[in-house]
Design a protein around this nucleic acid. Structure first.
Lengths: 214, 214
DNA sequence: ATTATCTATAGATCTATAGATAATGC
DNA sequence: ATTATCTATAGATCTATAGATAATGC
């Protein structure tokens, strides 16, 4: 509660605690102001005022607004990540999907967070190099690992590498959320389940003529 | 060449021509500076200098940088749109995909435009209300119409409305481009074809056990 | 005379950085 | 004494708007 795991040892305790408190105050103030005014419109000054620090203190902790949103993304991913990692290694892919969908939907359905989804998607696209650096992003690494296992059991199409499939799946989930938040016609979890079925089964009618047998 | 179709009639000719020229100069200068400095980093002043007008003239024509990128998106969509509209009403879905893929890949593979793809995707997400206002965006309307026809012939899954499928298809195409531009490991057209096959057939292995029979 | 297009510029906000303060390591 | 954290602030850039100019409609 007091310190992060990588802050132990001989480091200064008072200073670390103070820094983390300021950072947390700024983070929560920023999210609040983002929701109130919109990410693009809000003023850093208002964030600093709410956090009761100077405007420059914000820039000391966060190089830009984008970095706050990236931290929100990591916070949002944590419950899904823990739920997926708690599954046994041979868990069926469906249970991985369920863990991701339920935790993600619960986080983003709460309060008025959905106002931030589109901006966060933009940050995510700008900051992450898709198809590369998978290890740097824990949720991508976790889902990727499960997809690889499923591919090994022959559950996934052998045409496309499982890591690429995992990236496209997460991308679809994210895009679905971004579209859901502008018009929430159904519960988010239902929407994400629908996208999952579409992703796995494809858009073509299985009863109709098979499309493009690759 | 001189005027847009909606500018005929008794409107001032000299003024219209002058305005469109200034607008075009600003547009091309903006794209050039965006490519050179990045959309987020570039200064409006540099765009105005290159276009040889005042900085405020930029804001007169474009409320923000985003509006320039939106115009680039419309320009990029035009060849695809015309190719799709030139197809006969009963053209197979595959020819619609081909028209979109070839024209889109040709546009974005040229020069160093790919540097703008991620930013444009962000603008597109921010400005378009997915699942709504389909008519306002011509490319969505055109693809949607073709998907509806295909659904009528039983080629598409009956579970999801064809307009929604069309939106998700375009979203996947866009996301694939955004990921391609950070790591162009293959020709863009090949990547888009792969995404199309994945979209239609799904990620599950047809030889394996069918997934989630809805 | 009125209006559309564009310029000049005031005021707001951001970015970069020099300096203050207090915790830390020696 | 040194360093990390934060503040104060100068300079850069943006946003908003009053005003200049020349084309337009009557």
């Amino acid at each position: 509660m007091l310190l992060d795991a990588d802050d132990q040892g001989t480091h200064g305790l008072v200073r670390d605690k103070q820094r983390e408190e300021t950072r947390k105050k700024l983070y929560h103030a920023a999210i609040e102001i983002f929701c109130r005014d919109g990410v693009a419109n809000c003023r850093i000054e208002d964030i600093a005022l709410k956090a009761e620090v100077s405007r420059a203190a914000f820039y000391f902790h966060f190089p830009s607004k984008d970095d706050v949103l990236l931290e929100l993304l990591r916070e949002a991913e944590t419950p899904s990540l823990e739920a997926i990692n708690a599954l046994p290694p041979d868990a069926p892919l469906q249970s991985v999907f369920d863990a991701l969908i339920q935790n993600t939907a619960a986080f983003w359905s709460a309060e008025n967070r959905n106002r931030l989804l589109v901006d966060m998607f933009g940050v995510s696209m700008r900051r992450t190099t898709i198809l590369a650096d998978r290890e740097a992003e824990v949720i991508r690494a976790a889902v990727s690992k499960r997809f690889e296992f499923a591919a090994g059991k022959g559950e996934l199409s052998p045409v496309i590498p499982p890591e690429v499939l995992a990236d496209f799946y997460l991308l679809n989930i994210f895009a679905a959320m971004a579209s859901w938040c502008v018009q929430p016609i159904m519960p988010l979890a239902d929407m994400l389940s629908g996208v999952t079925v579409l992703f796995m089964n494809g858009a073509s009618n299985p009863a109709g003529s098979p499309f493009l047998k690759a």
